[in-house]
Simulated scan of single mutants.
Amino acid sequence: MEIRLINIGFGNIVSANRIVAIVSPESAPIKRIIQESRDRGRLIDATYGRRTRAVIITDSEHVILSAVQPETVAHRLTSRDQAETPAPAQ
């Protein structure tokens, strides 16, 4: 399996193969997930002191906070997938 990396802002990079979800931090359940992961020592704050705009949940139960919009992170993830997919033969 090939390792793919995705930029989540400010030079921080995450393994795209480990991402389960990219969500907005506004709802109460997501805020609860953030607090629980902070308590368990599984929170990674990659915001550099800026406002959290995306919460990335990984398959290892780590929660990563990013200052980049969830749509931007998802676009970087999907555009990389499309660039690697070979064009259909005509």
Rank of each mutant, 00 (worst) to 15 (best):
I34V: 07
I19R: 06
I56G: 02
D59Q: 11
E36P: 02
I64F: 01
R51L: 15
H62C: 13
I30K: 00
G49Y: 08
R42F: 09
R32A: 15
E26P: 05
Q35R: 12
K31L: 06
R50D: 15
I30G: 01
R42P: 07
E36K: 14
E26R: 12
A21G: 08
V63L: 03
I56H: 02
K31Y: 03
H62N: 15
G49V: 07
L65S: 01
P29W: 02
I44L: 05
T47C: 11
V63R: 00
S60L: 11
I34Y: 04
I56P: 02
V23D: 07
I34D: 03
T58V: 02
S60W: 06
D39C: 07
S66R: 04
R53A: 06
E36H: 11
P25A: 04
I44T: 01
S24K: 11
V63E: 03
P29Y: 04
S60K: 08
R51H: 10
P29M: 04
T52C: 12
S37G: 08
L43H: 05
R50Y: 15
I19F: 07
E26F: 13
T47W: 11
V55Y: 08
H62A: 12
H62Q: 15
S24T: 12
R32W: 00
S24W: 02
R51Q: 14
A21H: 14
I22S: 05
L43F: 02
E61D: 12
S24C: 10
V55C: 11
V20L: 09
A54T: 05
T58Q: 02
P29G: 01
A54M: 07
V20G: 01
A67P: 11
Y48P: 00
I56A: 05
V20S: 09
Q35A: 15
P29R: 08
L43E: 07
